[in-house]
Design a protein around this nucleic acid. Sequence first.
DNA 1: ATGAAAGCGCTAACAT
DNA 2: ATGTTAGCGCTTTCAT
Lengths: 337, 337
Amino acid sequence: MRVRLEDVARAASVSPKTVSRVLNDEANVSDETRKRVRAAMEAMDYRPHPSARSLAGSRSFLVAMLYDNNDNPASTYLAEIQDGVLEACDAHRYSMMVRPLRMRSDDFIRRLDTLISDHHPDGVVLTPPITDYAPLLKRLRERNVPYASVSPMQRGNAIGVSMDEQQAARAIVEHLLALGHRRIAHVIGIADHGASRWRLAGYREAMAAAGLPEDPALVVQGAFTFGSGVAAARQLFALEQRPTAVFAANDDMATGVMWAAGEYGLKVPHDLSVCGFDDTPLARQLWPALTTIQQPSREMGKIAAQQLLNLLRGRGLGQLVEIPFSLQIRNSTARVP
Amino acid sequence: MRVRLEDVARAASVSPKTVSRVLNDEANVSDETRKRVRAAMEAMDYRPHPSARSLAGSRSFLVAMLYDNNDNPASTYLAEIQDGVLEACDAHRYSMMVRPLRMRSDDFIRRLDTLISDHHPDGVVLTPPITDYAPLLKRLRERNVPYASVSPMQRGNAIGVSMDEQQAARAIVEHLLALGHRRIAHVIGIADHGASRWRLAGYREAMAAAGLPEDPALVVQGAFTFGSGVAAARQLFALEQRPTAVFAANDDMATGVMWAAGEYGLKVPHDLSVCGFDDTPLARQLWPALTTIQQPSREMGKIAAQQLLNLLRGRGLGQLVEIPFSLQIRNSTARVP
DNA sequence: ATGAAAGCGCTAACAT
DNA sequence: ATGTTAGCGCTTTCAT
């Protein structure tokens, strides 16, 4: 049969409430008693019943991870974040559920309400691009559901994790500049995503700092997909004055650019330097391997969840942790021809 | 405040137990009463408290989706299955949790036990390649946790969903044969995965049926990744007698083959036909677009979960549903040069 | 076909 | 620092 809290109490010769105190790391238990109770729990392999706990305590020990299912970024990115969130939740014995939501859909808020009413998550983790969807944030606040974000655009009082993507983008463009490139193109991601804006801003900043006026023909719209990278590259290669380097806003598009280069008979990096952003597994598998910015998605998911859990467990307020990027220089970039 | 079952009972002038009966679709409620109770629930926007329900009823209304985190197939595949499982769970007001497990890890079973003891899922959905991991299945049976599988290898009394991958592989190779190809290579997936075996078997079957003896040099090992496709293709292109067509066991590897073809100056499909398996989004974005087998992962996840839920809800026993494949002929395959 | 009473396993609020 | 009592919102069991 199932071992209950009451059984542990009996074994440790204390009251159920004391066991409960130990279970929840509460105060007012002597070290000696605490030790004895812990030993009894261990010996009996006691597992608290989550439903009983949440029914009596009105906390669910549940974290929901929300993501956009409409034009979500690469599924590998989300999968990694999910793994990180899960790891953090596991460590604190919280459970996690995932909820796809359609940002442009009319019943977005209704679905959110359903989620909250049906499952009572103690908190939620928001992933791009819904980290800054105003109606969502408003509703979460109204319903008193704490949240943490991965790469939020508004950094005001947000908690979670972020990376200085603009700085990173600037660094990678400066790498190209240092190689002698001047005609450097940029392939933008989905327009209103924070990631797209920061990366574009970093590109512009680096170009401006190098005294290069922006050539609108060199900045083309993509959509974070391989296919959009191919299309963007074709557009660039059709130019009279082709770029000598392309900075795509993510690795998938960079891969598309390399693909298109093949079509046009351009050798990377000899005829064309290409770089991306994210450091997906693909980046290392390509030949030549892709110069890119390492974005540790899994780690970011984990940190965001940890901040949320700190808040939920009354361990401080939760912060917006800034994590460092690192420029991965590989073989897809070389000196200008 | 929260609307409780008791409140609904009062509003409908019945006892709490009757509302409970209606909530759980139980018998012994007159149609008229049932209607009245349903109306009251609707009017009051009643949401049963999941914890109270599971505490009293000893069912969790929870389905866990298990996947391998060691050498999992493409994350997009799992993400799609996950979405399908989630959709089915939502429809029946079950919640879903995801659990990565490391198949080759020693504490696999311990982690499974922890999952079951901590969360008491009413059932689990198994995804490749852990659908046939004997210690797992054994433990699930011992602990009386029902399960359904996506593409299990042992079809004995499994429930879930499957596709005739061998037949599909045979069909795609027959397509190549019909185009006049004779030197057809195959890039195998991760060795012990069912998917790899079936696709290889289908390849062999088609070749044999065409009276072509197997050339071992034309069958090379891959690992389902883009990079492994590139490596396999380089091996094939180094052969004195190059193949005129390559059937890769999935789209990622097929993409790798096309990439390597570019390196070798081979034009697809003019110099080389390439086809894959899965019909990932990538397949349509490539140029030329990839001939492949459509495998509706999302739908498969949904069906597997539905079969499990049928079982859990006492609606029959759950079956192994066979879903049809469809050959997507695109531009990466053409007549033999 | 419907209801009354008891209790699932925990924690809140109040003792001591 | 520890214990007692009541009750979270449902379902079970057993009655009628």
